[in-house]
Design a protein around this nucleic acid. Structure first.
Lengths: 112, 112
DNA sequence: CCTTTCTATAACTTTTTATTTATATAATAA
DNA sequence: TTATTATATAAATAAAAAGTTATAGAAAGG
């Protein structure tokens, strides 16, 4: 994974997510990936470049073909970040609960 | 959550991720969120609008302030999609293992 | 009431992104 | 060799995004 910027940015495009979805079913060549879309082949090549740049897919050379597959650890860093956020939120809401409990006790509304 | 497009797109920007990180520590006003950045207040307001549009934050009105906090279920849909991808990948690699095992057995390299 | 604070919107500029068509390259097939 | 197939790159364009300054509006504080 190159960076969260690149990864999230790559995932923001529905065409690229569809490409990943197709690749989740197995390796595919550029033409195979391009087929379902009403889009030129160069456009798909560009999308693949973006996905590769984000570390989400890898490619091999097979004659004149360039079969793509998902990078095995593609979503590791994204997961890490989301998990961190999730945990921070949980802590935050725990603390909020505490605050609300304290307010309950004092029944004071002199905040604000 | 509005859409995966909006959510991933919102998360692709480092300033917005930093804002979320700040909000993970608790509610904050626009000015508080803007302070750490060398960026104008309108720019931060725009980022907040994007985050709100993506369903990642919520805001309340408190006098002239608009305190923001993380939306409780902010990352649910993202999680769902990533989990789906992860599982599809796992199935894919299981199948790949099977293919490799089959190749091993026949020791044939007449593919390609 | 007047001023200040907090936030949003508008208008504009600059960058980036997504796309197209045309073309180049490299391997395969005939 | 010549034609075909698979892919990439280049040039051009259009649309979206991110930032700026200027300004407006609403609430709060003297």
């Amino acid at each position: 994974m190159q960076s969260l910027d690149a990864a999230f940015s790559a995932l923001a495009d529905p065409t690229r997510r569809a490409i990943l979805a197709r690749l989740a079913m197995g390796e595919a060549t550029v033409m195979e990936l391009a087929a379902p879309f009403e889009m030129s082949q160069p456009a798909v090549s560009r999308h693949l470049k973006v996905l590769e740049g984000a570390g989400l897919i890898i490619r091999r050379v097979e004659g004149t073909k360039r079969p793509c597959r998902l990078a095995p650890d593609a979503i590791a860093e994204i997961d890490q970040w989301l998990n961190w956020l999730r945990e921070a939120m949980a802590r935050n809401y725990d603390r909020l609960d505490q605050v609300l409990a304290d307010l309950e006790k004092t029944t004071g509304d002199d905040e604000q």
